[in-house]
Design a protein around this nucleic acid. Sequence first.
DNA 1: ATGCCACTTGACCAAATAGTCAACATCATC
DNA 2: GATGATGTTGACTATTTGGTCAAGTGGCAT
Lengths: 191, 191
Amino acid sequence: MEQNTRQKLIDATYEEVYSHGYQGAALADILANAGVHKGSMYHFFPNKKEMALSAIKEKIAERFGTRYLAIAKGEGDYLAHFFEGLRDLKQRDFRRGCPVANIVQEMSNIDEDFNVAMKEIYAKFRQSIKIIFDKAVSVGELRSCDTAKLALFTTSTLEGAILSAKASGDAQDYLDCVECLISYIESYTHE
Amino acid sequence: MEQNTRQKLIDATYEEVYSHGYQGAALADILANAGVHKGSMYHFFPNKKEMALSAIKEKIAERFGTRYLAIAKGEGDYLAHFFEGLRDLKQRDFRRGCPVANIVQEMSNIDEDFNVAMKEIYAKFRQSIKIIFDKAVSVGELRSCDTAKLALFTTSTLEGAILSAKASGDAQDYLDCVECLISYIESYTHE
DNA sequence: ATGCCACTTGACCAAATAGTCAACATCATC
DNA sequence: GATGATGTTGACTATTTGGTCAAGTGGCAT
C-alpha cells in the first residue's frame, strides 16, 4: 500500500501548521494537500486540534531523534559534532523559523493542551542537549559544570538566533550568534 | 474629550494581537474591548491588517522609547542600568512572551507587509542595544569590540530567554539565561 | 440657521470556517 | 457469499469571519 491516509494527514498538517501557524492552518488546505476527504479525516481524528497536536508530537519527535540523539549516541567528539550541526545551514529553514518556537509563541498562552504539549517538547529538547554536554563532560571535552543551565542557555540562544535570522531575513545573523554561543561554551572547555 | 476613538482601537488591537496573535485576533473582540462600533473602525482604518500594523508600530515604538533609549540618554553606568533592566521581572510578561518575537514568528513568512514592518522594528531594537554598548565603550565600561555583533547576540539571547520562560512557564529560566548573557558581555569588560 | 464634514450606528453580506452525517466501498473472516 | 469492521465520499449545516453601507448625529464655521 502507498503511504496510508493517517500519515498523509499528519504530514500535510505539520507542513501547513509550520507554514501558517495553527490558527492560520485551514482544514481545507490540509485536506487538499493530503489528497484526503474531510469525512475520512474525521474518521482518524476527533477534530482539527487533536490532529495538529498529533502531527506536532510525531514529527518533532522524529526530528529530534535524527538530529541530537544521534550525537549523544556517537563515540566521542561530542562537542565538535554538536557545533558542526549548529553551523550546518542546510538543515534549517530561516524563512519559517523553528517549528517548536513558532508554536510555543503562538499557542502556549492561548490553549492549555498546546501549552502542556509544547512544554514537554521543549523540555525534551533541552534534555537532549544536556545529554550531549554530560557526555562531553564525561570524556573531558568540557570541565565539570552545571550542564542543565548550560543546556538551557544553549537552547535559548539557538532559538533566539533562528528568530533573529527570520526577522532580518539574513542567515548570517544566525551564524554570528552561533559563533558567539560556541565561544561561550568553549569557555567551559578550559580548566 | 476622553481618549479618542482611534487610540482606543490602537490600544485594544495591540492587546488582542499580543494575546491571541494576528490571525487569532477577532475583530469583534477588538471592537467590544475598545467600545467602538465596526463602521467607526472602518472610518479610521481601511482594514484589520492596517489597523494591526499601525497598532504594532505605534505601541512598540512607545515601548522602546521608555525602555532602552532612556538608558543610552543617561549619564554613565550604561551597562549597569542595562543589566538592571534585564533582571527586572516586573516589566516582562512571560505568559505572553515578547510582542515583537510573537509577531515575527507568526507573520514574517506569511505576509510581506508584516515581514517588512517586523524587520524594521527588530532592526531598531538591535540598534538601540548597540547604542548602549557604544556608549559603554566610549566611557570604558566595555573594551573596544564589534558592538553590532554583540548587540545581535544580546537581542537574540534575550528573545530566546523569554521564549524559554514562556515554554517552561518558569521565570527562573529567563533569569538563568540572563545571568549567562551578562557574564558573556562582562567578558568584554576586561582588557 | 444653514450647510458642511468628521464621525457614529448597526443592520447586512459574502466567504470561509470547523464539524456532521448517511450512504457507499473494500476487505478479511467465517 | 453473507457479515461486519474499517475506511471513504462529498453534500450539508451552523457559526464566525472580515468587510460594506446608507442613514444618522453632533459640532463648527459661515
